[in-house]
Simulated scan of single mutants.
Amino acid sequence: MKDTFAQPEILPPGKESREVPKQRLRGAGGAFRDENLDLLSRVLDTWFRVPGTQIRFGLDGIIGFVPGIGDLLTGLASTIIVLAAYVRGVPMVTIARMVVNLGIEVVVGLVPVLGNLFDIGWRANRRNYHLLERAMATHRRDTWRDWIFLALLALGLIALAMVPFVFAVWVSAKILGMLGLHVRL
């Protein structure tokens, strides 16, 4: 009887990351292979270099100059890395960090010119790729850094949500003061 199982593919050694060794996951093929995800993050964030400097940028910084649609397109391309992390079983707290990195890049990237400069410096795709590498190499469900990051993010969002409330109370007190009704806060 003929063997129907697929034979493993032997690939030449690739360029290893300086942070963590690459690990393959059974069934992670196609667009979700390490090499493809690394290439995608490099193309989006560090593919080009300004001659005579160490400044690197990618398509994310260039396409972002197209009003409205540029940041949307690169944001959609960036979700491939996050989706690959989910498929590979990366801890949800790490995926949340990846989504926040991507969200920060897309939201700040909407600001004309300054947003594009921020995209060049922030490099959310490289950050997310390194988070994926770390999660696949350590086999831990989450790290204290992930939880601190999410806690600080939650505190920041709560503070941001409180700003309109505090402003409304302040304006109300000023209006009541002008009407002769003094309210102590």
Rank of each mutant, 00 (worst) to 15 (best):
L179P: 00
V107C: 06
M98E: 04
V183S: 08
V82Y: 02
I120L: 14
G177T: 03
T138N: 12
R127M: 07
E16R: 12
N101F: 08
E9V: 15
D146T: 04
K22C: 00
R97S: 14
R26S: 14
A159Q: 10
R184M: 10
G103Q: 06
V50L: 15
A173D: 11
M92I: 10
L185M: 13
D71M: 14
L110T: 11
D38N: 12
A85M: 14
I175W: 11
L73G: 03
L102P: 01
V82C: 09
P8M: 13
L176K: 10
L37K: 02
T53W: 03
P164M: 13
T79G: 11
G115D: 03
M98S: 03
P13W: 05
D34E: 15
F48D: 03
F118I: 07
T79C: 10
L181Q: 15
V43I: 15
V171D: 10
V43F: 08
V93L: 12
L132P: 02
T74L: 14
D142K: 11
S17F: 02
A84P: 04
R18P: 00
M1V: 14
D146Q: 14
G64T: 09
L110D: 04
R24V: 03
K174Y: 02
I95L: 09
L110C: 11
L44P: 01
R141N: 13
E35D: 13
L37D: 06
L150Q: 03
K22A: 09
F65M: 12
R49E: 06
P8H: 12
V183F: 12
F118G: 09
A137I: 04
T143S: 15
Y86S: 05
L83P: 00
V87W: 00
A84F: 01
T46R: 09
F149M: 05
L11W: 02
R184D: 12
E9T: 13
P12L: 11
T94D: 13
V169W: 00
G30C: 08
M1W: 03
G27P: 01
M98Q: 09
W144Y: 10
T79D: 10
E9W: 06
T74D: 06
V20W: 00
F57Q: 04
L117D: 04
E16W: 04
T143Q: 09
A28W: 01
P91D: 15
L40N: 08
V20K: 05
R24C: 07
I95S: 04
I175F: 07
Q54H: 01
L117S: 01
I148M: 05
I148H: 02
A96P: 02
V163N: 09
D142L: 14
L37W: 02
W170H: 05
L39E: 08
D3K: 12
L25T: 14
V20T: 01
T74A: 08
I69C: 03
E105Y: 02
E9Q: 12
T53C: 03
L25S: 13
P51E: 06
I80S: 09
I80P: 00
A77V: 01
T138H: 01
L181E: 14
E9P: 00
V108K: 06
